[in-house]
Write a protein that binds this DNA or RNA. Structure first.
Lengths: 230, 230
DNA sequence: CGAGGTTTACGCTTATAAGACGAAAACCCG
DNA sequence: CGGGTTTTCGTCTTATAAGCGTAAACCTCG
């Protein structure tokens, strides 16, 4: 029995976040065709033959933003509700993308940044995807070094705190942020300090993330194994 | 421009775990056809037209195990490497399934349980999927109440500890396990105690999980917001 | 019926991590 | 040089987890 299996179309989508104007914003483009003509949508598009999902989302992102500016990209989930597209049977694999706050990539005229706090009407199930992506980001800020993808190469603790505040949506004290990140070994001072600005005040020390690859802090593994004694 | 997008085949797969004989084991079946004829493989199969991925994996699991015994099922990731199937362009969405330790579901003759510690040669990329699923399980044991899906409705602390030991692969002290889980409010004593067995010893108290739905402990959100003062 | 063995339960102590707070440091401006 | 501002650092308090020892509750066997 060699029946032909059913084949759905498949798209890759990405919720690309950047902290702008003190808030978390996501990249959207305005659809010019039905369905959902005129609504805003996530960047993405059809998977090409023999193409990897990650290659696909990178290819489609290229049309909306310089993909070199996307500091982090990870798969979230695959959505398969048959009614998610009104006209065809289409699966969607959602990605989370992050852009550092010190760049302002050029985007086409149909594309722009929108605060996640006040999203316009979105096409398909894209609103749910954006909110799920934000939850993933918030969770990972706690137990990984994913903050490196939101921050410039060098930054002061106040600037980093502002990024965390924007992404997490609640206050963060710079003191504790420093201790937590330094203890985990993901943050280190560069040794230099910024020339003080026009407002005065003590010139802040500059910090950087030690490694620009995603790392999970295993410190949150409660019931962890007993220390291997030397 | 209304080009036809490319369409891959799509399968759902599940790494179904159960603690058996003191170790974590996964459900495998032996392939009778090429490719990978004779190798062991994860349960799963083609996605049917207009079928949800979760419905698909449940349908395929039915052929290998009583799906009613699967206490937890969650999506892991979607794999799209074009070379993962030697003959066709096939995507795969992997699931993690858990079966409580007090049941022994009937399985077909081509299907059996295998210790994750010593897997036989597996077809396709199924070995990686099993190991990734185990990592997900281990992580979630620390910050969710997912243990309910591995444990019987009622259990002693020693039994629960044995389940955690088997799943985590390292020692766990019953004292700390109890304190951690009770503090999080996921575990509660039933009030009854088990009649003592033939070995003697103090009869243990019986416990149960409060809620059989997956819950995430937000306690691991470091840098959490300041307490809302009343 | 009591001693010894076994398993569970519980409380005390120690270690570590996080949050709160205030003082000191380092700069600007007038 | 004094006042204002921002950063930095240390300390105190609280919360959580781990280690450990002892008590409790049951069995069996002599």
């Amino acid at each position: 029995m060699t029946e032909e299996p059913a084949r759905a179309t498949h798209v890759s989508l990405a919720a690309v976040f950047q902290v702008r104007a003190g808030g978390l914003q996501t990249l959207l483009w305005r659809r010019a065709e039905a369905p959902y003509e005129g609504d805003w949508a996530l960047p993405g598009g059809y998977l090409a033959a023999y193409e990897t999902l990650e290659a696909s989302i990178r290819r489609h992102l290229t049309h909306k933003v310089d993909v070199g500016e996307v500091a982090h990209l990870e798969q979230l989930t695959t959505i398969s509700e048959p009614g998610r597209h009104p006209a065809e049977w289409q699966l969607a694999t959602a990605y989370l993308g992050l852009v550092a706050s010190d760049v302002d990539p050029a985007v086409p005229s149909d594309t722009g940044w929108h605060p996640v706090e006040s999203l316009p009407p979105l096409a398909f199930d894209h609103r749910e995807i954006v909110l799920a992506a934000r939850e993933r980001l918030r969770a990972k800020l706690s137990y990984t070094n994913i903050g490196f993808a939101l921050a410039p190469p060098e930054f002061t603790l106040s600037e980093l705190r502002d990024l965390y505040v924007a992404a997490l949506g609640h206050e963060v004290t710079a003191t504790n942020l420093q201790r937590v990140l330094v203890r985990r070994g993901v943050l280190e001072p560069t040794g230099t300090r910024r020339e003080s600005g026009p407002v005065g005040g003590r010139p802040p020390a500059l910090f950087q993330f030690k490694r620009p690859e995603l790392e999970v802090t295993d410190q949150f593994a409660v019931l962890r194994p007993p220390e291997a004694s030397s």
